[in-house]
């Protein structure tokens, strides 16, 4: 008994000695993007007691994988509401996974929204179907925005948001901003700067800014001189009344790839 008491005291003393180390390591891990998941009561309601225990015990990725498969099944069965709930849980469990945010946003903004618009059997009213479609656009956008809150340096997510803003919301200012953000990230694609400028060119009042960006790209050389870029510059030259000697030469077709 005496030994157990001494052992317990030693364990507590060890606990006190390692406390600063643990606090330091905890801070380091959080700074490096670990331990970002909030395992709270709403999550417990979503994944059930067993799933919550598993997630708490260090098997978050495994629980997320199982729920992703369930979401995939819901997709095949066209159960969009259930799928949305499952995707939300998966992204809560694995907030650092770009793939989960990306695919969740895509499923909602493109697949679920189109299905909602086409589902005349469940909803005969065209207005209500369009409303449902809009709600799924918003939900898709929410996935991208939430993903970016956890992963602000993900160029891939900024690009997906930009495409959504451009194609579904027709919000060129938001699309230009998102493409520009994507272009500034470490995983940027070469076309994103160009796409940001294309979107700027569509915004009334920002023609000068768009022209300068497009012209700067044009001046980088033939690899940037795509037909759309040349066309947009020409339109803006006309709009802004650029002097003839400062205008670009007509681009030869096929000079860009």
């Amino acid at each position: 008994m005496k030994r157990v008491v001494i052992g317990l005291a030693a364990l507590l003393a060890f606990g006190a000695a390692r406390l600063p180390l643990e606090i330091h390591l905890d801070r380091l891990q959080r700074t490096a993007g670990f331990r970002a998941t909030s395992l709270d009561l709403p999550l417990r309601e979503q994944i059930g007691q067993m799933g919550f225990v598993a997630a708490l015990s260090g098997f978050r990725s495994l629980v997320a994988a199982v729920l992703w498969i369930e979401a995939h099944n819901a997709w095949q069965e066209l159960e969009w509401g259930r799928m949305a709930g499952l995707l939300s849980t998966v992204t809560t469990l694995q907030p650092k996974s770009i793939l989960y945010w990306d695919m969740s946003g895509w499923h909602m903004a493109y697949n679920a929204s189109q299905a909602a618009l086409d589902d005349k059997k469940r909803q005969p009213s065209a207005i209500l179907r369009q409303r449902a479609q809009q709600q799924y656009f918003d939900l898709g956008k929410k996935f991208y925005l939430d993903g970016l809150r956890t992963n602000p340096d993900s160029g891939a997510l900024w690009e997906k948001l930009a495409i959504l803003e451009r194609d579904k919301f027709q919000d060129h200012a938001a699309a230009a901003h998102a493409f520009a953000e994507a272009a500034s990230k470490p995983d940027a694609r070469p076309y994103e700067r160009r796409f940001a400028a294309y979107e700027l060119a569509q915004i009334p009042g920002r023609e000068r800014e768009a022209y300068e960006k497009l012209k700067a790209l044009y001046d980088e050389g033939p690899t940037q001189r795509y037909p759309t870029l040349v066309h947009d510059i020409k339109v803006l030259e006309e709009k802004l009344g650029i002097p003839t000697d400062q205008r670009i030469m007509d681009a030869e077709p096929g000079s860009a790839h």
């Binding site: 507590l12 490096a32 331990r35 260090g58 650092k96």
Partner: peptide, 22 residues
């Protein structure tokens, strides 16, 4: 806090597998 080990400190694989570099 003093008696038990902090096992969450060793549950980094979930985030690593999601693409978070260590």
């Amino acid at each position: 806090a003093l008696l038990f080990p902090d096992l969450q400190a060793f549950s980094l694989t979930d985030d690593i597998v999601a693409g978070n570099p260590i």
